[in-house]
Nucleic acid binder design. Sequence first.
RNA 1: CGGGGCGUAGCGCAGUUUGGUUAGCGCGUCGGCUUUGGGAGCCGAAGGUCGCCGGUUCGAAUCCGGCCGCCCCGACCA
Length: 611
Amino acid sequence: MKCVQSTILESLRKVKYYCTQRSRGSVKGNDGKSDSGGNYVRASQYYAPTLRQAPAEAEIPSHKLLVRGGFIRPLTAGVFTFLPLGLRVLRRVENIVREEMNAAGAIEVFMPVLQPRELWERSGRWDTFQPLPLRTEDRTGRWFCLGPTHEEVITDLVAGEITSYRQLPRTLYQIQTKFRDEMRPRGGLMRVKEFSMKDAYSFDIDQAGLDRSYEAMYEAYVRIFERLGLPVVIVEAEAGSMGGHDTREFMVLSENGEDTIFMCDSCDYAANAECAAARPPQPTQSRDKHGEPVLVDTPGATTIQAVCEQLDTEPQQLVKTLLLRADERFVAALVRGDRELNEVKLQRVVGTPNLRMATAEEILALTGAPVGYSGPVGLPEAVEIIADHEIAAMNDFVVGANQNDAHLVGVDAEVDFRVDRYTDLRRAVAGDECPQCSEGYLTAHRSIEMAHIFKLGTKYSEDLDAVFTDKDGQEKPMIMGCYGVGVSRAVAAIVEQHHDDDGIIWPLNVAPFDVVILLLDTESTQLFATAQDLATELEQSGFEVMLDDRDERPGVKFKDADLIGYPLSIVIGRRTADSGEVEVRRRRDRAEKIVALKEAGAAVEQLASGA
RNA sequence: CGGGGCGUAGCGCAGUUUGGUUAGCGCGUCGGCUUUGGGAGCCGAAGGUCGCCGGUUCGAAUCCGGCCGCCCCGACCA
């Protein structure tokens, strides 16, 4: 069944995808259709309000242009209505995602927004998922959340129906509205409280199966973003509150993104700044003893900067000692004075998610000194000392003395204090040597997170009893993966990537319409008939057509067409009508040609191939 | 949640510092005439509880207090 289905879909996809540029899923609805037989839309009957000025609150291009162009309207902070044009774009993005999901063998479902509290308590995420889900209560006092994601629901669903290895693997997906109580929505569609997301979940019998399912999604994503006109960089990432490992993010480089990624300027290494690895430095040449550490007074010097000023030294000559509570025990994390601790890296090393900075009271109890004077020398045995690799390359440095208003100078690791282990603990910074190749250096780039894929393992299947009986008769938890694409965010990202001073430049694959006919003179019944005939002809050859028949001056129509960003336009006015010719234009590069009316269709086809 | 800014007509803004007649300007909207290949011109008109509540005052858009909303910068995520 599944086999037949995916084969048919695959061949359909190939026909659609490879044969013609414009046969994306049609988004024809009953919106403002012409009443004269064709399916084209008449601007005079449509709902596409454009704004001459951008709303004051918009700052980034996609926000300004999507509002000005009549694609979206704000309702309240982080919540938008999609107007007809915006909905058309959204549908086209969804359809591309849907086609690639189907082609990859995933099966579409549609899960509820409303999710009962009990389900979330079984996975332990009712109180821990970040950001906290929006919650609501029914009249009997029963609690629900508005789904921020669907691991619980899908796992519960599958647990009830899949019981045998014979029914696996399966990958299910949906395209649905998600709700997240973002602390700060921003940038128009970039970050909102209510958004459209494609989420897919794979269920496999073993790790190798998961690897295959994951790979299939990975490749589908590569095709999706190619078709959306979004060049992506795929980076190593952290799992966050989703859990899991081997996670990858699909990022679009953009000044207006909220994330920073590091890329090697020499090889293909790329990672989210949150988890980018730091290359261990060359080990120190000598471990010669510099003599006993010397206790020096540093009154009031609780910051790296203050210590450096008082001792006339550099942050690179200091070692920061950070005390953290991990479950019931304490660890000391050591990084060079000018570095920052990456808590996620430490968390991975320590092996517990329950990691937090020690409180002032805890520090006083452990070290006998207030915050700001902690050091590794003389720490209790029970405190594990974990040092960043760079510490191994340092000699003769400064640390806190575990005494109020005092530091130790002339300290050496392993001579003056023990190090339980060395590992990568610091945040990477631009300019670091690449951790993968030996030549390159890391460069920082702002970017937009478009998608995130995870290998979840058995967390949810164990919590929610999604087990199956394997070939050997053993009951085992299913091995899961999950895969998300920000659909409405993709709309914003596409605009960020494809616009100029005049407006949006939609790639043909996602444009609300392929071509607009600008009828400049609406008085002439003859020209109007010509425009209608042309619109019908183009519709019939597969284009989505907007006929701008509004009673507006030519300048208004040109400006709106540029702003809305139709990939192609045809100008019908007196100038060309007298000669029996029309003008065909391409938005992207302003290419244009004047052709005989009956050649217009062919000219559109031709320019479309370069849009 | 912390920091900063803003709230005056459908949209963009001035006026608030220093309280004082009928609260202005541009765009848009409506009517009329002229115009018609890159956001037209002229004439006329409509449209505002100045975010909300309370206070000070003879008098509040303006001063004071509280609340609400929106945007931007930081800790999270598609």
